[in-house]
Computed example of a mutant assay.
Amino acid sequence: MTSFLHTPGGRSLAYSRIDGSTPGIVFLGGFKSDMSGTKAVFLEDWAKTAGRAFLRFDYSGHGQSSGAFTDGCIGDWAEDAAAAITALTSGPQILVGSSMGGWIALLLARAMPERVHALIGVAAAPDFTEDSMWPQLTPAQQQQVTQTGQTELPNDYDDQPYILTRRLFEDGKSQLVLRAPLALPFPVRLMQGTRDEAVDISVPLRLLEHADCPDMHLRLVKDMDHRFSTPDCLNLITAAINEVSPPTA
């Protein structure tokens, strides 16, 4: 059943939560995705069977949460995630970040490391607004963003195009995690498909090299795309959760 959290920032976030053993699991979705996606629902069902606490939610401007997508930015969505974790979970959590959610997870790890037991990145896309999205725009599209405040890009996962705003790019510059020291003092597991059309293999390799982490692994899956939602891939995610969980969980 969907419930709603009213955040200190004045937003209403849709969420689904189940109680269970700790550390709990928090799923952080991708850019313009919502908590009804394949990975989020699969992980909730798995958590129920495993008796694990689990939380999935919609960022503001996504799914059933309040606000318009075009009004949001990385900083807003990281703020939403922090509010949800603070209000709806207790103790350290295993963060499972998909695509943009991987960036959000790294921001949370930097802002509230005491609440992170482990981090799992699924096609994680840190710094994507600066490193991949902006460079992929044509000069005309970049000019549109600068002069009119937004431009459009085709969306391979939806009939509606992506509306990319000047605020998204400007805020993204202030949320970068691969330009300064990044301490991740807990287990980190990264998973990436070799045919991911949205996140290049160089991204997790760069994160692997950049982060200060004593227990960090990267798993590449041959021929898998950005969705990473086949039964085998979903089982890899739950195997990683089990791997970073305490023996008593």
Rank of each mutant, 00 (worst) to 15 (best):
M1A: 03
F4C: 01
F4E: 00
L5F: 04
T7V: 01
G9Y: 02
G10I: 00
S12E: 02
L13I: 00
L13Q: 00
L13C: 00
Y15T: 04
S16W: 02
G20H: 03
T22I: 00
P23L: 00
I25D: 01
I25V: 15
G29F: 02
V41T: 10
L43K: 06
L43C: 09
E44G: 05
T49S: 07
R52N: 04
F54N: 01
L55M: 05
D58K: 03
S60N: 10
H62C: 07
S65Y: 03
A68N: 02
G72L: 10
G72M: 14
C73H: 13
E79V: 08
T86V: 11
T86F: 06
P92F: 07
P92G: 12
Q93N: 11
V96I: 15
S98M: 07
S99E: 06
G102S: 11
A105Y: 06
L108E: 11
A109M: 02
R110H: 12
R110G: 04
E114S: 09
H117T: 09
A118C: 10
A118H: 10
G121T: 11
A123G: 12
A125E: 03
P126I: 07
E130P: 02
E130F: 03
D131L: 15
D131P: 07
P135Q: 14
P135H: 13
L137C: 09
L137Y: 12
L137D: 10
T138F: 11
Q142D: 13
Q144T: 06
V145R: 04
T146N: 12
T146S: 15
T146M: 15
Q147T: 07
G149Q: 09
Q150M: 11
L153T: 06
P154I: 03
N155K: 11
D159T: 06
Q160N: 10
Y162N: 13
T165H: 14
T165L: 14
R166C: 14
R166W: 10
K173E: 15
L178R: 05
P181C: 10
P181I: 12
L182V: 08
A183E: 13
P185C: 13
P187W: 08
V188S: 09
M191R: 12
Q192H: 15
Q192R: 12
G193A: 02
G193F: 01
R195K: 10
D196K: 13
I201R: 15
S202W: 14
P204T: 14
P204Y: 15
R206I: 01
E209M: 14
D212Q: 13
D212I: 08
C213I: 08
C213H: 10
H217A: 15
L218F: 09
V221T: 05
V221S: 15
V221H: 13
K222H: 09
K222D: 12
D223E: 13
T230R: 12
D232F: 12
C233A: 14
L234T: 05
L234R: 10
L234V: 08
N235P: 04
N235F: 07
N235Y: 11
A240Y: 03
A240E: 05
I241N: 08
I241E: 05
I241Y: 10
N242H: 01
N242Y: 04
E243R: 08
S245K: 01
S245H: 01
P247W: 02
T248D: 12
T248W: 05
